[in-house]
Design a protein around this nucleic acid. Sequence first.
DNA 1: AATCTCGTCAACCGCTATTTC
DNA 2: AGAAATAGCGGTTGACGAGAT
Length: 274
Amino acid sequence: MGRGRAPCCEKIGLNKGTWTEEEDMKLIAYIHKYGHQNWRALPKLAGLLRCGKSCRLRWTNYLRPDIKRGNFTRDEEDTIIKLHALLGNKWSKIASFLPGRTDNEIKNVWNTHLKKRAASGEQQPVTNFGASTSTGDRMAGAIEIPVDPAVDVFGIFDDALSTLMQSNEMEDSVFPETLGGRQDSPWTSSQKQSRGPVAPEGTNHPSVHDAGKPEEEACEAEGTRRDGQREEWLDYLEKELGLRDDGEEWDRWDEMEGDMVDSLLRDDSFYPYN
DNA sequence: AATCTCGTCAACCGCTATTTC
DNA sequence: AGAAATAGCGGTTGACGAGAT
């Protein structure tokens, strides 16, 4: 056999398409008894004529006991819209904020309902950070330029972040050490006031929107609170999208991700498509 | 009643990331 | 170190049902 990865399974003689009740029962029974340490080996052991990948998908998207079935609530839909504006087509990431919902389900809901709702008579999605048109380029961190160049993409995040920064809720969730909690926030207390992030030592990563900007100009901009927020937010996004790799310091951002997104979701004024 | 169109959603495919050996 | 195996992600497809013609 040549190089490259082998097919995930021998497809010959395996069932495809819709799962039968009997197959479901076999899969459930097996996983309840033995778990799913090895998806590749599972179908054979469970007596299923399916490939492991198919089993995994069936379990995670349909059979898992914690799956929430039924229509999405308006709240859930709004959450998806907000998260999509923040994260782009990162369905699994979005799903992690909606307990009981799967990435596949959310993707379907977006494609069938929410995309239209977002587009109909309202603004086009103003951003689609990290979204990609094909699987191949998604890890390249491609950023789609907004369709309408007049739309101030960053301004929208500025405004959202501004609002959040003014609320105690954000203060507490994003800067938890103010509550006597964590001590490893990238912000110092004075920087928290100016809302500027502390750049990791020895790093100097230009933000995406500042690429090619003269250095003085960038320094000048740094003084303002608004730009501080912008930098902060872009830093976060760049990190999130894998556009930068600053080592340990940036790993800490990951820890705050949930808090930041949660805060945005709780903020009623942040609705990216209005 | 027949057939066409469209929306929905489960499942598949192809790819990358991560882990194992 | 690097190849192979495995897990997971996101885009796409196709079966199916409902409503329209």
